[in-house]
């Protein structure tokens, strides 16, 4: 069982890989189409700007193999931080750039209703609680409302009924975990969220294992 961590020049690959290594989950870096063979999970990290990320995914020709793996081969997918936002349709961060469009959501600035309010500290950096909306979401085994994960973002995904599996609150509610079938998005950084985050990654790897019929 191998999880492929997508390298598109945006991000914290090192920390994701050391987290999987700590959990004893096999993973490897995937940066071209042919490396998608044999994967049982796809992991999209991401730090940086929305526009640049989409441009890199496009120029490295990664969108097609990713969609093929996720939608045709039904391999579990997890996007974290920017990797989650990229699943939306568009983002205010980079106007006019289309996202992957897997989830019907537009990405807005953090606390979108209070755009002009100078007292709001942006980006939203730090530990914040998750409020579980969908306890059946496989990522939440052994995780409860009130557990904290580490956030570091300036843009956010709105709460979508049926898709938002957990929300968090920073001058207003936003989606901190989304699930659509076997596609997951986490706004925080599970690889940097100590015990709670590592448990989420463990739950994801267990799901990939299950999908493979290993359990």
């Amino acid at each position: 069982m191998t999880i492929g961590v997508i390298d598109y020049g945006m991000g914290n690959l090192g920390s994701v890989i050391s987290a999987f290594r700590f959990l004893d989950v096999e993973c490897r870096i995937v940066s071209v189409q042919r490396e998608f063979t044999g994967l049982s999970g796809v992991f999209l990290p991401g730090v940086g700007s929305f526009g640049k990320a989409m441009q890199n995914l496009r120029s490295k020709d990664l969108i097609h193999p990713m969609e093929e793996a996720v939608f045709e081969r039904k391999i579990p997918f997890m996007g974290i931080c920017l990797g989650m936002q990229l699943m939306g349709r568009s983002s205010e961060e980079s106007g006019g750039v289309a996202g992957l469009g897997w989830i019907d959501a537009d990405i807005t600035l953090v606390a979108p209703d209070r755009r002009e309010d100078k007292s709001i500290i942006r980006p939203h950096v730090g530990w914040n609680e998750v409020e579980i909306k969908d306890a059946k979401c496989p990522l939440f085994q052994r995780i409860e409302t009130g557990d904290m994960t580490y956030f570091d973002h300036e843009f956010q995904m709105e709460v979508l009924p049926g898709v938002t599996a957990a929300s968090s609150n920073y001058h207003g509610e936003f989606s901190s975990v989304v699930q659509q079938g076997h596609i997951f998005g986490v706004q925080s950084h599970p690889e940097k969220s100590q015990r709670t985050g590592l448990i989420m990654l463990r739950n994801f790897s267990n799901l990939c294992r299950k999908q493979l019929g290993l359990e």
Binding site: G14, S15, S18, F22, E191, K192, Q194, L198
Partner: peptide, 12 residues
């Protein structure tokens, strides 16, 4: 830095 980062499952 690498040896430290691989031990830190918190932001660094």
């Amino acid at each position: 830095i690498k040896s430290i980062a691989s031990k830190a499952f918190v932001p660094m």
